[in-house]
Design a binder for these strands. Sequence first.
RNA 1: GGGGUCGUGGUGUAGCGGUUCAACACGCCAGCCUGUCACGCUGGAGACCGCGGGUUCAAAUCCCGUCGAUCCCGCCA
Length: 591
Amino acid sequence: MIYRSHKCGELRSTDNGKEVTLSGWIHRIREVGGVTFVLLRDQSGIAQLLIDASLHADLHDIVAGLHHEDVLRVEGVVVKRTEKDINPQMPTGEIEIQVKSIEKLSSAKNLPFNVHRSNEVDENLRLKYRYIDLRNPEVSQPFFLKHQLMQTTRNYLTNEGFWEIETPYLAKSTPEGARDFLVPSRLHDGHFYALTQSPQIFKQLLTMGGIERYFQICRCFRDEDFRLDRQPEFSQIDFECAFTSLPELKTLIQGLMSTIFKNIFDIELPLPFPEITYEHAIKQYGTDKPDLRNPLKIVDITEYFNFPGCTPFYEKIQENEVFLGISLPASDFSFSRKQGDELLASFQAEGARSYLFKHKEEGLGIKVLSEENRKALEARLSSKPQDHIIAVLAPASIAYSLMGKLRNSLGKVFIEKEQKSTFQFAWITDFPLFEWNEEENRYQASHHLFTQPNMEDYQQWHKTDPDKIRSESFDLVLNGFELGSGGLRIFQSEVQRSILNIMGFSNEAIDEQFGFLLEAMDYGAPPEGGFAIGLDRLAMVLAQKPSLRDVIAFPKNTRGVSYITGEPSKVSDQQLKDLKIHFKKESTCNE
RNA sequence: GGGGUCGUGGUGUAGCGGUUCAACACGCCAGCCUGUCACGCUGGAGACCGCGGGUUCAAAUCCCGUCGAUCCCGCCA
């Protein structure tokens, strides 16, 4: 059986007169008097069938029984449409197929939603019937993009001398970082595998094994709460190099990104990407993943209000609070009194004092400031008449993040209007090695446990102020999304042990949990570094989709549930028995 | 773990104390239509308004609880 001689979407007027066999799904049916128009769809596109039962009497019955999404095989002749019947909206709009025979390969029940209208349907229903939704090119297109990303990446890294090597998914649970998905071991009572959160340790072992350039497009598993840009399983472009440096890694990644943009979009990316230190990013953008399409900047205006009598600002500043402002140019950000009040109210709710200043013709309306001081402030903010200034007075720990959120929400409209399809990369550098964990009252790794400290910082501060140590690591940010992170790794066991000690690991705990790694470092480990790029996030941003679920073929919902196959699900008593797992209480979560 | 929003025929929504309140669009079924292209026209079927309780003479509508969905914070690269 020949199912098709041509694909629906490829037919043009140059095919006029050809005998063709097509197979596909019924996209629409339009019955007009004695003739029936059927749009037949396959992956390549849509072609219009013309079925005239008066010419082929045997078609009459079969046409009467056709429904949307039935699967057909048809034979017919390509004919050019007359001038007035051409549909310029369709790529195949100059022709149609005069049908001679129809065979229904498969019939479709009434569908839960229309393929071409699924964007208005509840997402969980679409996910349950993902195989229907995927028939819509708008839904399937991101998967082709992702395919291109993977192919380009493999080619690029292969050309750079990388080997693609697989690492285990069933691995050892490690402390720190995200919660693990655990897999009980049948052969070892009470013992568990953990699904890998990332191939971090394995890739280090590979370079220690003399494989100087490794990469992998790898699945990662993390059992945390999910968001638009977080799924329980996701993919990373993961790589590691021996004898490398931060500049070399950056060059490599910039090369990958520019190759991707060149190959897929025919866009020349401006290189190198701008570099912003972590400290600078927080102070200017209120986040470590700034969207550089957004022109707004946070300005520290504390100094202009820091004099006795400048009530109430002065008193709060003396208590170590900071005063931060964002200038909103009237040319780009129209602003109503009501919006302003709403914003201020949302800040008060977060425990910050907030202010909205309007720049009038005669200047910013802030009475406590001298004219000279006020003018200096206006210059600092580049503020002009009609502009607004939003300002927050709060402890630094909350002020910057509040302003960061404000900057994001204010910038949204601007980006949507002016910058929607532009791509702004940035490197974020000089991250602190540790961050303080309030709950556990100890330091934890801000990147991961094996990140190389800046050795000068380390020598100076590791005994007294570990939080002043910067790490040899960096992030890649694209349009406000953290695309990936990486850096240099510790390759000396003494340093690794000392870092783990600072984070509160006893030597016994280190030997038990990381003994194999420290031992490996003692058998001749090369200096090394690497990076990991979130493949799904990259695809999401490039496809300009709002959710990771749009670029994962069979994603889970926000509670980690798949409606298509029904996991997580209960398992049989026998399976539990084999694993020697007993539940104290009958679980009632789902069937 | 916390907060916001939502839950009405197959799908998307309207109704937000009573009276043509169970409606509208798409889809579905039947009929008509020989150039449609989101075809059109006529008619029809289809919902105990997520679930449980309460207030009331009266609840889709108000209240409480619960379940589910979703977004955000916490958490997480």
